[in-house]
């Protein structure tokens, strides 16, 4: 009995999670006129109007491209800068390590809205308002603490003995980091990258504040600004939401391949 329940539970969870997505899919393929009558489970006929409008008159390519550039750049930079930081915090013994770690966490505790005004002044001073860099930079203030905290845990899970073995074998710390630690931490790195990407992809407040015109808007901002004075184009909003989900789904699929567990099996005896 419990066995059946245990098997049904994941199915139920998946259905619950996918149901809104399905409704969105159906809605995005239903003409506006029928959208607020009862939406059929299987829309007939399929109408691609919303998508055509989205990429035609709305020019949804632009925010999509912006979001992609900003999210990818944030993720790469956060990993590139965060990984050495996290490694140092995880492995090297130095004075004030605990304090640094606590400070890093403290930064990510600040309510986002409280840093918007000072960041705005900074970015204006640097002439970065309404640029990609002007989004990547503030995103890093949140992405870096996230990355560092995750990666410290990830690196600590790589057995120290393996790293020491590499150093005995003639590898410098840097080489051991690149050739031994990074490959062994790959699943953790992939997970961290995924979370950073998701965070940047979904971010709204900074994107709204630090961009001025539609040519710099990211996806969440663009969708929010779809609404006209008198009506919300729900069909297009749903279509846009689905399109925005696609890159995330792709990233998850790619990352999942790296999330192979048991990669360290056999290196050290448990």
């Amino acid at each position: 009995m419990t066995g059946t329940a245990a098997r049904l539970l994941p199915v139920a969870v998946v259905i619950a999670a996918l149901a809104p997505l399905y409704v969105a899919l159906v809605g995005s393929l239903t003409p506006d006129a029928r959208l607020f009558q009862s939406v059929p489970l299987v829309p007939t006929p399929l109408v691609w109007d919303h998508y055509r409008a989205l990429f035609g008159t709305r020019g949804f390519w632009v925010p999509l491209g912006n979001s992609l550039v900003v999210a990818v750049a944030t993720t790469l930079l956060a990993l590139l800068l965060g990984a050495p930081c996290a490694y140092a915090l995880a492995r090297l013994r130095f004075r004030g390590r605990a304090i640094v770690l606590a400070l890093v966490l403290a930064v990510s505790m600040l309510p986002q809205i409280s840093v918007v005004p000072p960041l705005f002044l900074f970015l204006r001073e640097l002439g970065l308002i309404d640029t990609h860099a002007g989004l990547v930079l503030p995103y890093l203030t949140f992405a870096m603490p996230l990355t560092i905290w995750f990666l410290v845990t990830v690196f600590r899970q790589v057995p120290l003995e393996i790293e020491e073995a590499a150093m005995m074998d003639g590898a410098s710390r840097l080489v051991a980091f690149r050739r031994i630690v990074l490959p062994l931490a790959a699943p953790g790195l992939a997970t961290t990258a995924l979370l950073t990407f998701l965070f940047s992809w979904n971010e709204f407040l900074f994107a709204l504040t630090f961009t001025l015109g539609p040519e710099r808007h990211t996806v969440p901002v663009a969708i929010a600004l779809f609404r006209g004075q008198y009506q919300v184009p729900w069909g297009e909003v749903l279509a846009a939401a689905l399109v925005a989900t696609l890159p995330v789904a792709l990233v998850v699929l790619v990352a999942q391949r790296r999330l192979v567990s048991g990669l360290t099996a056999g290196g050290v005896k448990g």
């Binding site: 393996i162 020491e164 150093m167 074998d169 360290t264 050290v268």
Partner: peptide, 28 residues
């Protein structure tokens, strides 16, 4: 350590799990 040219055998072996035995031997 990397400049001392000593070899160490660890209690828990500390092999490189992501490399074949051949590459483990070749690494040093």
């Amino acid at each position: 350590p990397q400049a001392r040219d000593l070899a160490m055998v660890f209690q828990h072996y500390a092999l490189y799990p992501h490399m074949s035995v051949r590459d483990n031997l070749a690494f040093g």
